[in-house]
Design a protein around this nucleic acid. Structure first.
Lengths: 203, 203
DNA sequence: ATCTCCATGTAACTCGTTACATGATTTT
DNA sequence: AAAATCATGTAACGAGTTACATGGAGAT
């Protein structure tokens, strides 16, 4: 029998718990450049928010935990409000942990799709309710797609699509391309559903 | 100044909180046919689990809450284990609440995508690590797509694609089509990333 | 005057996951 | 003999949301 060590993050202090997904999201942003909690909150709306959401009330405690674990370090400056402003930078240990996490096998899942849940129950309501549902979703995904396409165009103008895998901007571009694919897929599905509804209406 | 009542679910007992998304997921399943907590747990792995995940430990307390709110009702039968088996059925109030929820505007969001988070940080690692990441994801989405396509074929054989919007099986079919679109989109993106990596390797 | 941005935190709560606990029947 | 399926719950904790709290600088 061999003693196996489960790969699940650092235990620097001897008892700290493994880094959460949010922790890795913060680390990934800080790894690019030093940031304040406020700036992180902004990134976690856009663009990181497109694949990992949170609120500032979760960010500040998580930053403290990451610092206690030695994965980031902070410096204080005079702040605009009553409290000092704190800027966080990644440590060598933080970068190492982030790299190790990327290489670790991922759990596929974490699905939470309210629209599909509603569609699953849509047989209970008038087709017109389902139609409104699909139209509403269509509007949302259409607007989102336009935003992403504009960013894609600007990225290409800047030559980001040829920047290479070791360039952070290229990593952004990879996620942006998936965003575009996602919105297009949803849009097509909405159109198909609306089409099905029209076909069911007049025979 | 007018007194506005916010639409956020029933307050039958006078102090019950609004129904959670999980509550609606359970209601949507029970609305089709009476089910036990165990059967709900199975559905919340497959097929509901593809857009709303949970564990049985969350299901049992939520069922009690829904029953206390009068949205479902239960009957006891002798169970296989030490405790009696409990089968839940939707009440008229439950169906009404589910219908009202479908018509209420949805928040688009609830994104949690670990793969994209890793890709966002992928500039930190060797391209070979990113390649392994994409290949692993590709395998997963490929298997998932095959499963969905098999179900699609069997649904079409049974004529489900022509069943109409008031048929529960057709609602399943609508979500299945989205599942297929999703997996195809992810697969295409994985292939594109792997392609980009190959192009970056040899010039 | 009011709004938005910058900036940081806490309190109270709900949601979600992992582990514990039990036990008969059926399948491998 | 061991594993899976059916079946239901609780305990402990971690993750996530909403609301509260403060306050300067700059824009409308």
């Amino acid at each position: 029998m061999t003693t196996e060590t489960v790969a699940r993050g650092p235990r620097i202090g001897g008892q700290s718990r493994p880094v959460s997904s949010l922790g890795y999201a913060l680390l990934a942003a800080i790894a690019r450049e030093p940031l304040t909690g406020y700036a992180l909150a902004r990134l976690l709306r856009d663009p990181i928010g497109y694949f990992w959401e949170t609120r500032h009330s979760q960010i500040y405690p998580e930053l403290s935990r990451l610092e206690r674990a030695g994965l980031i370090e902070s410096s204080e400056q005079p702040g605009p409000g009553p409290r000092p402003k704190r800027t966080y930078a990644a440590t060598a240990a933080g970068l190492a942990e982030l790299r190790a996490w990327i290489a670790r096998p991922s759990r596929f899942g974490g699905r939470r799709d309210e629209l599909m849940l509603k569609v699953y129950a849509s047989w209970l309501v008038e087709p017109s309710v389902t139609r409104d549902l699909a139209r509403d979703a269509r509007r949302h995904h259409s607007a989102q797609l336009e935003l992403y396409l504009a960013r894609d165009a600007s990225a290409r103008e800047r030559g980001v699509d040829r920047a290479g895998f070791r360039n952070p901007s290229f990593a952004d571009y990879l996620t942006l391309r998936r965003g575009i694919g996602y919105e297009r897929g949803r849009l097509a599905w909405c159109d198909w559903v609306i089409d099905q509804l029209a076909a069911a209406d007049d025979p």
